[in-house]
Design a protein around this nucleic acid. Structure first.
Lengths: 228, 228
DNA sequence: TTTTAATTTTAGATTTGTCTAAATTTAATT
DNA sequence: AATTAAATTTAGACAAATCTAAAATTAAAA
């Protein structure tokens, strides 16, 4: 099965929205893809015809098994390429997303399996997101949002939900990156902003908006995998 | 300047045909691209509008400076990726062409420059073809066709002109690959076939068709580079 | 130098993915 | 329950890249 870059982007976006929001709406998908709702509807019909999607007009949609499998393979490719770019080509973790968006659409299966081996079968990408293995299995991660973290509990940054350049700029400015250890010192109910202590630095203040998009784990990364 | 994959393929094909045949025809280009002459004409008009090509209807065409520069960058990407696939991912030199055809259209300049550095600025790809540097300069190679080689002169295989799977299969079967040392033992004028002694093996016979596509150098690879 | 053949180009159609504007359906409010 | 608002879909159009079939041009042969 060969899919166009555009189709793959739709599948990937639907997959991610399914995970986060449970149900996906045409508008949300259009926003995620930077396209228009009408275009989304057009594509949904095509994906349904190709049996990648369960869809009935006006009544919502979700990936079926085949669509999910394809989406996970695209995510696998994206994250392996990100890992390659950071670990082998010395890119910064905040520079690789755009490039991986292109590389993820290279179709060769042999390529990605050999790349995986070359990299030593990494389990998480440079943003802390789990990399599906060649069977589509992916680590389960007990991530919570920094916004939901109780006071004075030390955790490790394990993922960034919204990876816009603007967002990553804020984090970089505050010396927050994957693996950074931090804890919440104070919460301001007025605007839900937080005072956060990062490693051995002086405390910084993060807006609610930023905090919501910083994902943390209080655990060592677990090693179980489960079927996607 | 961003160009579509299709435009880049046209530029690359025109560049190669210019080198080999001197002048390029619509039919030859269509054949090289596996497309129809009418499609070529359509694209020529677009490339002319984008000022990558000198073209007048019915009167032939060739790349201008801008078009040549773009073509060379695509070739650079193609050959660096091939080198990466063979040297880092352990692909065979006869397996990488298709994959590099996709990878060559990834647009990031930073990516290709870092890949180049990661690979140690290689000068030739796994098929023996020179890799243009970041300025588009490329090694001059004194290659001649095996078909034009005199008897009993030991040379090294330095390039394969026609890289079809079928062709590469013949070469692999006869243990001929890049860097292989060989000499011609006998020429058969009847069909221009050759008896060739490969390294320390027993002699094999090659058809004129195959011999024409095997390129050899009698020299150490020269190190001058010249502007493309 | 006509005539014939080959090459190249145009004309019109098709596919993929997108858009705007209008219509339809569902959800929310009064 | 009727009305208004929001979300979604259809209808029709467009750009890119391709195709087939027919026309135009150039080259080759008689």
């Amino acid at each position: 099965m060969k899919h166009s870059a555009s189709r793959e982007n739709y599948l990937k976006a639907i997959f991610h929205l399914q995970q986060e929001q449970g149900l996906v709406t045409t508008n949300a998908l259009a926003a995620a893809l930077g396209t228009k709702p009408a275009s989304v509807t057009d594509m949904l019909k095509k994906l349904k015809e190709q049996k990648l999607l369960l869809y009935e007009r006006y009544r919502g949609f979700k990936l079926n098994n085949e669509g999910r499998k394809t989406a996970v393979q695209v995510i696998r490719k994206h994250r392996l390429w990100e890992y390659f770019l950071v670990k082998k080509l010395q890119f910064g973790w905040d520079e690789v997303h755009e490039i991986a968006e292109e590389l993820e659409h290279i179709s060769s299966r042999a390529l990605i399996d050999r790349l995986d081996a070359f990299l030593g079968h990494p389990e998480t990408d440079p943003h802390g997101d789990p990399i599906p293995d060649s069977q589509g299995r992916m680590q389960v991660r007990r991530q919570i949002s920094l916004a939901d973290l109780p006071l004075n509990k030390v955790v490790q940054v394990s993922g960034i939900a919204s990876q816009t350049t603007e967002m990553l700029e804020v984090l970089q400015h505050n010396h927050i990156r994957l693996g950074t250890r931090l804890e919440i010192r104070k919460k301001f109910p007025f605007d839900d902003s937080l005072e956060v202590k990062v490693s051995n630095r002086s405390p910084v203040t993060l807006s609610a908006r930023v905090a919501k998009n910083v994902l943390v784990t209080d655990d060592q990364p677990p090693t179980e995998r489960r079927q996607s």
